[in-house]
């Protein structure tokens, strides 16, 4: 982002805050939505979490210490909001860790806004079989187009660990999806 420091000043100045916040929404709403959507699976849940995320961002902006980029800080809030939401859902449903895979797929396919074809469903199944952290790392890198450095800050993890996890996951998915024409055409 150009002149991020100036933008942050506007965001924290009551005189310009509202307009700057609307710009912030334009810039990050979609990116954060997709990040959240993959974590919480359904559109309805993602919508709730996205709203909570931006409310939290708005409230927390005066305390933003600029120790990371604005983007990283916002992703971190969105990520934590999503995890908090999932924890609450787990408590509500008394779900055990054993049925995590089934839960992931069930919730996904029950969403009226899931329009997956057979290929998409297969990819989702492969993803759902991954350990949660590995899946999140893959999704953040592959679909959210985040840099490893940013991911390390968001997930509070080491870049090397993330890289290693990502490339292992890519290899695993390639193997699982070999029979899918669409995927093999485009793979590296």
């Amino acid at each position: 982002m150009k002149n991020e420091a100036d933008f942050i000043k506007r965001l924290t100045n009551p005189r310009y805050r509202d307009k700057a916040f609307a710009e912030l929404l334009d810039l990050y709403q979609q990116r954060l939505y997709w990040h959240i959507r993959k974590l919480v699976n359904t559109h309805e849940n993602a919508d709730d979490v996205l709203q909570n995320t931006f409310l939290r961002i708005y409230k927390s902006l005066p305390n933003f210490k600029q120790q990371s980029s604005l983007s990283t800080w916002m992703y971190r809030i969105a990520h934590n909001e999503s995890l908090r939401f999932l924890e609450n859902e787990k408590k509500k449903q008394h779900a055990s860790l054993d049925d995590e895979t089934n839960n992931y797929l069930n919730i996904l396919t029950e969403d009226i806004y899931f329009e997956g074809t057979a290929v998409q469903l297969k990819l989702q199944r492969v993803l759902s079989e991954l350990p949660e952290k590995q899946r999140i790392i893959f999704q953040m890198k592959y679909y959210d187009d985040l840099k490893f450095r940013e991911m390390a800050a968001i997930l509070d993890a080491k870049e090397g660990t993330l890289k290693s996890s990502y490339y292992n996951t890519v290899k695993h998915i390639e193997e699982k999806m070999l029979d899918v024409e669409l995927f093999t055409k485009t793979k590296v």
């Binding site: 334009d26 997709w34 959507r37 559109h43 996205l50 709203q51 409310l55 998409q120």
Partner: peptide, 23 residues
């Protein structure tokens, strides 16, 4: 295309309005 994740039409503009109202 990859994940089959859809959303309501014009979702982002409506969501933006809702968030701004809530703020």
């Amino acid at each position: 295309e990859d994940l089959g994740l859809g959303m309501p039409e014009d979702y982002f503009s409506k969501s933006k309005s809702e968030i701004l109202a809530k703020v």
